[in-house]
């Protein structure tokens, strides 16, 4: 069973056709890079795969569940159990200390706050974010926010990590380390990673590259 499977998916925002008939299958343990110029629909593809956006046509099957038949609550549950998301702009919850932000998926899942925070602290350490746990997101630099978002994505040990420009605000060395962590800690447990990036070094980490242009796939090649 594939981790996520999009078949013939199209999506439009009002009159802007962001994606046209795109298909993508990600196998367990696989790392896929989605690349392409600005505005070609990469982030849209990611949000569709996460079930945040609903496909207007075509089918999305996420860890075995057809999202067309899942209501918002069901999609949210799949997301918090099996998917870790790192978005382009960090997307931490404002006003919530960074430690609680990272612990959030576990807290929502019903874990005791103490355990959840301990796990979160471990991941903050692993991504190399060294700030006091009570720091608020507004007090983080852009790169630090991205590290915290990565820690939050990994804290549940997800089957699928969806990362949108995860290294965009990081320096080369830190970016490389974070990418290693995202990929190795996920694939070691049989999970898959979808990396969206402009950065070729990020794309080169993948087993397969899917290149989008103006909402359509223009090439798809295996790199391994």
């Amino acid at each position: 069973m594939s981790t996520v499977e999009l078949s013939g998916v199209s999506h439009a925002y009002g009159r802007t056709q962001a994606l046209r008939d795109v298909s993508l299958t990600v196998a367990p343990g696989e790392v896929v890079a989605v690349t392409g110029p600005s505005g070609c629909g990469k982030s849209t593809l990611l949000l569709l795969a996460a079930g945040v956006l609903r496909a207007q046509s075509g089918r999305v099957v996420l860890t075995g569940t057809d999202l067309a038949g899942a209501d918002e609550a069901a999609r949210a549950r799949i997301r918090r159990r099996s998917v870790g998301i790192v978005l382009q702009f960090g997307q931490l919850v404002p006003d919530l200390p960074v430690l609680d932000n990272v612990a959030l998926p576990l807290l929502l899942e019903g874990h005791a706050p103490r355990e959840a925070r301990a796990a979160a602290a471990g991941w903050l350490d692993r991504v190399g974010l060294d700030v006091p746990p009570t720091t608020l997101p507004s007090e983080l630099s852009g790169g630090q926010a991205q590290l915290a978002a990565a820690a939050r994505a990994l804290v549940t040990g997800p089957l699928l990590v969806l990362a949108d420009e995860p290294t965009a605000s990081l320096d080369t060395a830190t970016g490389r380390q974070l990418l290693d962590l995202l990929v190795t800690s996920t694939t070691a447990a049989g999970g898959s990673v979808v990396l969206v990036s402009h950065d070729n070094a990020v794309a080169a980490r993948a087993d397969r590259e899917v290149r989008l242009r103006a909402g359509s796939v223009v090439h798809e090649v295996a790199l391994s």
Binding site: A73, A76, R79, R81, Q91, R152
Partner: peptide
């Protein structure tokens, strides 16, 4: 942000 990490309605 909460919805993104999987908070249900």
């Amino acid at each position: 942000a909460l919805r993104l990490v999987g908070a249900t309605p």
